[in-house]
Amino acid sequence: MKNIAGLSIKTEQSQLYILDQTQLPHQQSWLHCTEVNQMVTMIQQLQVRGAPAIGMAASLLLAYRAEQGDSREQLLQSAEVLRAARPTAVNLMNNLDAMAAALVQQDYVGAAVECAEQLFAEDVQLCLQMAAHGAALVQPGERLLTHCNTGGLATAGVGTAFGVIRLAHQQGKQIQLWVDETRPLLQGGRLTAWECQQLGIPYQLICDNMAAMLMARGQVDRIFVGADRIAANGDFANKVGTYSLAVLAHYHRIPFYVVAPHTTVDPGCSDGGQIPIEQRPAAEVRGVSGSFGSVCWSPEQASVFNPAFDVTPAKLVTGWVLDSGVFEGAAVAAGVLTRLR
């Protein structure tokens, strides 16, 4: 494998390294990943996260294992193990489908390596295209709001929703960004805020339940969020709390956009009700853990409901920003999203 460098994934001398996102923003620790079960743990513990980044990490690990001498049958079995690591993120499924197709080639080792490298390079380009389409929507001086983390930490490139925000800032549009902390794992407070600091983007961190007040005061002009899976009818799953923002935006008549590559569209999924929603461990809600340690603030045996994602219906979405363009309600109703795949 050639050397590849992303914000959260890199290969050096044919070795795969993952930036441990659970340690951010205070520690930057790169983990050497060599085994399938190790990658499954990294994905499930959110050491690597974001639908595109999960797909990239899994693909590169399979390429690494191929170079290490795993048989075709072993690699196909490993792909199935990785597929089950996070059920909502369709990019993981798509990347593993592409890798499985490469593994049936006669030179399956070379084909696997080439496929993984191409998937990485493709995501970099898709991010740039999404950023360009989305940034064209942003007007000078707008106050934007985003949820969770959708930047370079979640992709191979500049990001999805955050890539739009990043480019608008680089274009000198004098934007201001509201960053939802994103309970319960604080991806906004830990990761998006960190990326903003690195890039010099003006931002203010807010608790998730403060967004309604800002909208009522007229202090939010436009909202950009990402997606882990977009159904054929435009419904989409994203980090839990996204649906609440969409309802609030609809009530306050604020443009609400979902930004994702075409690889996140799942034409085999008719609507949001068909999207599998991952349930996370109760400890994530009972307290908090990070580079600082762990704290439990609830009764230790408190019963917990902890879905990782919620589903936003298409009727609440102003537009879908994909790498191929911006699509609005009528376009989605005509099945454009499905045909893009």
Rank of each mutant, 00 (worst) to 15 (best):
K2R: 05
I4T: 00
A5P: 00
G6K: 04
K10W: 07
K10Q: 15
E12A: 07
Q13W: 00
Q13I: 01
H26I: 06
Q28S: 14
S29H: 15
L31Y: 05
E35D: 15
V36C: 15
T41W: 12
G50I: 06
P52R: 05
A58R: 06
S59M: 03
S59F: 02
L61A: 08
A63C: 10
R65F: 01
R72S: 05
Q74D: 06
Q77H: 13
A79H: 06
A84D: 03
P87S: 07
M93K: 05
M93V: 04
A102Y: 04
V104L: 03
V104P: 00
A111S: 14
A112K: 12
A112F: 10
V113F: 10
A116F: 14
F120I: 01
E122M: 00
L128I: 05
A132Y: 08
V138K: 11
L145Q: 10
N149I: 06
G157V: 01
F162Q: 09
I165G: 04
L167D: 00
H169E: 07
Q171K: 15
W178R: 09
D180Y: 07
T182E: 03
A193D: 00
W194V: 00
W194G: 01
Q204T: 09
Q204F: 03
I206E: 09
A216W: 01
R217A: 12
R217H: 12
G218F: 09
V220C: 10
D221S: 10
R222F: 11
I223S: 10
F224A: 04
R229P: 03
A231L: 00
A231M: 00
A231C: 00
K239S: 07
V240C: 12
A249V: 03
Y251C: 00
R253V: 04
P255M: 12
P255F: 10
P255R: 12
V258F: 15
A260G: 11
H262N: 11
V265G: 07
D266M: 09
G268E: 14
S270D: 09
D271W: 08
D271T: 07
R280G: 08
A283C: 11
A283M: 09
V288N: 08
G290Y: 02
S294H: 13
E300G: 12
P307W: 04
P307C: 02
P307A: 02
V311D: 02
V317L: 07
G319A: 12
W320Q: 12
V321Q: 08
L322T: 14
G325F: 03
A330R: 15
A333L: 14
V336I: 15
R339H: 11
L340M: 13
